[in-house]
Nucleic acid binder design. Structure first.
Length: 475
RNA sequence: GGCGGCAUAGCCAAGUGGUAAGGCAGCGGUCUGCAAAACCGUUAUUCACCGGUUCAAAUCCGGUUGCCGCCUCCA
């Protein structure tokens, strides 16, 4: 298979040719753990989760690194605000991160390093930059000298001169150039600090990723990912650091995901419209969230609205309804899927083209329609083909990180969570359904319809199937 | 001021030179006691607008308008 990836560095789709054939090294910037994760974090993590799953499915031996930034100004500020230890804050939000991401079926990375565990490599890295003349020390601070790195700006497509023309640069008279950034920050009283040749302090924000990628993946590796907002300054500065230290190419493919907007507005502190994953999870199934996040191309913005989420839920219901029907028709899926079929092939074509999950999801739905049609047709050869298409669909689900449940478990979960909002419980519903079944047998359709209407008012939808009546909660 | 992106049916959204995927919603039909679900059919001669290149453009080029993002912590 040939995968094409849009590389932010070249602004074009390139054929993915890893450094070592058959292997792929991936570094994705993880969260700064000073608050709960919002839906935007979810998108980034889910997008790269899917990319890694797909690379593995394609036979690549992937080494996937995702870090935690557990020392940072924001964490310290938060700790001071709450009167807690910064490390306790970090710990709390790392735990929350795992709760959210596990719920979203995000696979763990192969290594999930934390800044606090990487102080020695970070210091070694800074020393290298000082030795190379790429950095300078002032008092207890060490700054990177952007003018010393000829390629500065090549990732984000900016020129230092152009940016200096802008007026939005913080003033720090210690710096030689306003765009110089801290590699090491001297500690103020009460702040967490580590010893260093330059005095007690902590690493700047950007150096950690350069150091961690170097330690885990080497000087040059394949894919570096993160949100679009990280292109500048964070990733630009990583390039400057790593290439400034080793004089070798850093990441070979830069992959950046777009934002999640809320009702067409960017999430921002001023608007106070941060949507936390844990809150979204209260209203929507984790796979609904994934399906929604993957329904647009990863580089495009995606707009979170109730309507969009309801549509994603309707889509997921449809897929599980199919799986349920297929299971009744041809039995549960085999442990290991057979030879992949036409739908899977088309899905991989979509994914090969810069991980086009939106197109891939379209293929998945076409598979659902095809297989449903086969079951309707009831021809002799239909059932084996249904099984084959179902295998393809489940295989796609394995990449998208959805369809992790049996249909029975999915609908049972849907019912119980949706039922909590209604003033009725399952046993009452079952009793009413039995009564209605008797009424229908007696051809007392008035009574039967009255029961159905009564349940409908409580958002309980009945479906009379050949093998009996089932119920679902609408919404 | 600098850099970049987007504009496709009622809504969401793929599609980067060869004649418009998919989803949601709607309508007609099959099925059903009636429904629901499912399936079938149907819904853009057209891809913001104006020019240009080409046998051929939603797709390339130039311009116009509108929206958005980054340049500051941010996924």
């Amino acid at each position: 298979m040939t995968i094409r990836i849009y590389n932010t560095m070249s602004r074009t789709k390139e054929i993915f040719e890893p450094l070592s054939p058959g292997k792929a090294s991936v570094y994705v910037c993880g969260p700064t753990v000073y608050d709960s994760c919002h839906i935007g974090h979810a998108r980034s993590v889910v997008v790269f989760d899917v990319i890694v799953r797909y690379l593995r499915a394609g036979g690549f031996e992937v080494t996937y690194i995702r870090n935690f930034t557990d020392v940072d100004d924001k964490i310290i500020a938060r700790a001071n605000q709450l009167g807690l230890d910064p490390m306790a804050i970090a710990e709390k939000y790392i735990r929350e991160f795992y709760e959210d991401m596990d719920a979203l079926h995000v696979l763990r990375a192969d290594h999930e390093p934390r800044v606090t565990q990487f102080m020695d490599p970070i210091k070694a890295f800074i020393k290298k930059l000082l030795d190379n003349g790429m950095a300078y020390q002032i008092d207890g601070d060490v700054f990177y000298a952007v003018e010393a790195f000829g390629g500065y700006g090549k990732l984000s497509g900016r020129k230092l001169e152009d940016m200096e023309a802008g007026a939005r640069v913080g003033i720090n008279e210690k710096k030689r150039n306003p765009f110089d950034f801290a590699l090491w920050k001297s500690a103020k009283p009460g702040e967490p600090a580590w010893d260093s040749p330059w005095g007690p302090g902590r690493p700047g924000w950007h150096i950690e990723c350069s150091a961690m990628a170097w330690q885990h993946l080497g000087k040059t590796f394949d894919i570096h990912g993160g949100g679009k907002d990280l292109i500048f300054p964070h990733h630009e500065n990583e390039v400057a650091q790593s290439e400034g230290a080793f004089n070798e190419p850093f990441a070979r493919y830069w992959v950046h995901n777009g934002f999640v907007n809320i009702d067409q507005e960017k999430m921002s502190k001023s608007l106070g419209n941060f949507l936390m994953i844990k809150d979204v999870r209260k209203s929507y199934h984790s796979e609904t969230i994934r399906l929604f996040l993957l329904s647009n191309h990863y580089r495009s913005p995606v707009d979170f609205t109730d309507k969009a989420m309801d549509e994603a839920r309707a889509g997921l219901d449809r897929i599980y309804t199919f799986l349920e029907r297929a299971e009744a028709a041809v039995g549960p899926p085999a442990e290991s899927a057979e030879t992949a079929g036409e739908h899977w092939r088309r899905f991989t074509e979509a994914m090969d083209d810069d991980f086009n999950t939106a197109l891939g999801i379209g293929v998945l739905f076409e598979g659902v329609r095809t297989a449903n049609g086969l079951m309707d047709a009831r021809t002799d050869d239909a059932l084996p083909r249904v099984g084959a298409v179902r295998d393809d669909i489940l295989r796609m689900g394995g990449i998208l990180g959805i369809l992790n449940q049996t249909p029975a478990a999915y609908f049972s979960g849907r019912r119980s969570s949706a039922l909590a909002a209604e003033s009725i419980d399952a046993s009452e519903i079952e009793a009413l359904i039995s009564e209605r079944t008797e009424a229908r047998k007696a051809r007392d359709f008035a009574r039967a319809d009255a029961i159905r209407d009564e349940l409908a008012r409580k958002n309980i939808v009945l479906e009379d199937r050949p093998d009996g009546t089932i119920w679902k909660v609408d919404g």
